[in-house]
């Protein structure tokens, strides 16, 4: 999984979100390091949807009905958990080796 895909899955773990709120979430959660542009964002969303990790959902009531909302699927959650566990193991290993130096 590419880092940007991971960031998007993390961002989609919360309530359903549309394009702009995803851009903002990813930006905030990465301390402004990751800035998504429209073309790239929708290409990734399409890939994630095709993989079945996220899905389009109905727009929540009282929100902008013109926009498309996305949410993580169970498959996506499982994939995220797996990826996070793997990353966690890597992280622990890295810390251990850094301390040993």
């Amino acid at each position: 999984m590419k880092p940007i895909e991971l960031s998007l899955l993390v961002a989609l773990c919360g309530p359903p979100a549309h394009g702009y709120s995803l851009v903002r979430r990813v930006e905030e959660e990465s301390d402004g390091r990751v800035k998504l542009l429209p073309g790239n964002l929708y290409a990734i969303l399409q890939r994630l949807t095709a993989a079945g990790w996220i899905q389009e959902v109905d727009a929540p009531a009282e929100s902008d009905q013109r926009r498309r909302y996305y949410q993580i699927t169970e498959l996506g959650t499982a994939e995220l958990a797996r990826e996070t566990a793997a990353l966690g193991r890597h992280l622990a290993l890295a810390q251990e080796r850094l301390l040993a130096r």
């Binding site: 702009y20 429209p38 399409q46 013109r66 926009r67």
Partner: peptide, 21 residues
């Protein structure tokens, strides 16, 4: 520059997002 069918699906979304940004 996008393929036509892709544009048909995504153009409105892309424009909305661009507008916000």
């Amino acid at each position: 520059s996008y393929p036509r069918d892709y544009r048909r699906c995504e153009q409105a979304e892309l424009e909305l997002l661009f507008d916000d940004l």
